[in-house]
Every structure is written in C-alpha cells, then in structure tokens.
Computed example of a mutant assay.
Amino acid sequence: MTDSRFKDHLGRPIIAVTGMGVITSLGQGLSDNWSKLTSGKSGIHYIKRFDTEGMSTRIGGTVDFIAVPANNAVERSYALARETTIEALAQAGINGDFNGPLFLAAPPVEPEWHDRFALAERAPASTQPGDAYDRFLAAMREQPDPVFLEAVQFGSISERLSDKFGTRGLPVTLSTACASGATAIQLGVEAIRQGRTERALTVATDGSISPEAVIRFSLLSALSTQNDPPEKASKPFSKERDGFVIAEGAATLVLESLESAVARGAKVLGIIKGCGEKADHFHRTRSSPDGGPAIATIKAALADAGLSEDAIGYINAHGTSTPENDKMEYGAMLSVFGDRLKDAIPCSSNK
C-alpha cells in the first residue's frame, strides 16, 4: 500500500520537481542566469538579427549565442529546448531513455519571409486566380526541400526531442499563447496524478523573433516603443508602461511523483501543490476587463492545492507591461488577496 506521505489532500500523488534547465537572452543554464539576474543585468538589447530601421520597436531578447543549422523559428526553438532538457535531465540524474511522456509548449510555426520568397520565385507562373497553393506544391514536388518542410511542421520540434531523449508515447505539442508553459506543466502534473506515468518531461521553448513577429505585435500596440535604453523598456505595473518586450528562451522541468523521486534517491527541488486553468472568451487578443477568468484561475489553483489565500507568500505575475492587461491583472489579484497584496505579498514578473 502506498505511503500516505506521498499523497496530497485529495489522495493524489504529490508532484516533485527533480530537474530544471533554462536558457534566456541573459545566458545559458541555471547558474549563469541566476548570477546575472541577481547582479541586476538585463537580457534586453537592440535587435541585431535583422534590420530594424523604420520599425517602432527595435529591441528584444533574442538568443543569438546558440548555433542553428538554418535561420528559422523551428531550428532555434528546437536548439533551445534541446539544451535546457540536457541540463534538466542531468540535474535530475536521469540517463538513457526518459521513459515518460513529453509535453512541449512551442510557438506557432510559419515559414520565414525569405523562405516564402524563395519558394515563390521557383514556383511556376500563375494560370488562374487563387492558384498559389497549387503552384507552391508543384515547386516543392519538383525540388524537395527537407529544411523548409521541417520548418513548417508544428510537431517537428517535439518529435525531434522525443527521439533524442527517449520519451514514451506520442509527444504533445501545445500553444496556448502566454500560458503555454504553464499548460505544459499542468498536463505533466495531471498525467502523473492520474497514474499514467511516474515521470513527465515538460518543456517550453520559443525562438521565433523575426521581422514579421515584431511587426504583428506592433500592429496590436502590444510592444514597448521605449527603445532607449533597451533594458528599461519593460516595466510591469508602472505608470509609464507601454507594452511588453519580445524575447526568446526555453525551460525544462522534470516532474515525477514524490514517491518515485524518493525511491531513486533524487534531490527534490520543489513540490507542485496545485494548478488552475481557465479560458477567456472575451476577445482573441484582449483579456476580459473585469478579470473574471483570471480570478477564477487563481481560485481554481488554490483549491487544487488545498490552500487558502493567506497561505500565499509570493506571486509571480504575468505582468505584460501593457496598460490594459496590467490593470486587469492587478484587479484580479486584489480581488482574491485583498489588502495583503499591497504590503504583505511580494509580486514580480519574469518579464
């Protein structure tokens, strides 16, 4: 019979974190990032990957120190995820095949502009309106391009990670916008709680900064235009905020049941007590102004963890630094935590 020490308040397996890996525009690895963070360094800089002349936003957190075989979002995102997973598995003390499911949060995949133009140039001439798709397919059949094909398949990152690290079952790739990483963690937690596995590999990666990405977010008025100095642009919850700063990075967590971790002598880095997730149908890119879905999510996570509002001693907020979202998010947190939010609960944002 399973020891009750390894069960939570609802009789489910307690979830432990036994491995972590991270890459950001600050640097590679837990030690490098922590050292720079605690010394007050910023990973935001002027974008050098492409020409930003004439663009309203010219800054970002590009990761340009990891070599990739082709200049596209899939190759960059895979490389970042690969390196963070190597670090996490080493810390967890797991060698060989992982033998558990993979849940990957990844950015939407689209061909880079230069790849689209190259394909269009070698496509046959148009013979009738609306035949672009058929022409592009004809060009691909005449001259197959494995690199381009890999770059336009949403599931290719997770499939390559699965092959490299020996995960079990079909890898799951998901994209729930800014909640993607948290969603991947929750899927891993639920897989272990439901008894489907003893361990899960949860990865989030995004190497998709391109001219098109910056322009699209700029058209939504979501990006900060305070380019000078770059490291001062992101200022969540401040009066001078004007948008977020786009950046790249990846992180990996090794999750496993506490019982499994203890049995194999693994170091437990932390416990995931609870998760909460809700959908917001208000608008495709805007949050509900009354904060209803955010309030419900916080309360769902507390209930899942079996904790009261008074048990919370720190909040890591979304903190987009956009005028509308920060106002909504602060209101949602204030609704749940009351006056303790003002002077008793430290709150910050990784952004």
Rank of each mutant, 00 (worst) to 15 (best):
T2C: 02
G130C: 03
G195C: 02
A279G: 13
F50I: 08
I345E: 10
R82M: 11
D242Y: 01
R141A: 12
L104D: 11
T62M: 10
S39N: 11
F6L: 10
G29Y: 05
P13S: 15
N325P: 02
H9L: 02
C347Q: 10
A200G: 11
P236K: 04
L104A: 14
G313S: 15
G93D: 13
F103Q: 05
W113H: 09
D310A: 14
F282T: 08
F65K: 12
A139N: 09
S348W: 05
G96P: 04
A191M: 06
I298V: 15
S156C: 05
A344M: 08
F237I: 03
T205V: 03
R241N: 02
V63K: 05
R12A: 02
S288D: 15
T173N: 11
T320P: 06
K342Y: 07
H45L: 02
A132E: 05
P289T: 14
P293K: 03
G292V: 03
E277Q: 11
R76L: 05
D97W: 01
M1L: 11
A250N: 08
M1H: 14
G100H: 01
A125I: 04
K327V: 07
D134F: 01
G54Y: 07
M1W: 03
K235Q: 14
I47C: 01
T84G: 05
S158V: 08
A92F: 13
G43T: 09
F103V: 08
A90M: 09
L174A: 05
G40A: 11
S238W: 00
E87K: 01
A67D: 13
Q186P: 00
E83C: 03
D134R: 06
G169R: 07
G96E: 09
A132H: 05
S335T: 14
Q128C: 04
L255T: 14
C347N: 13
G331E: 08
E324M: 12
T84M: 04
D51N: 15
G306H: 00
N99F: 03
P69L: 03
P236L: 03
F154N: 12
L220H: 07
G207A: 09
G43P: 13
R135V: 08
N99W: 02
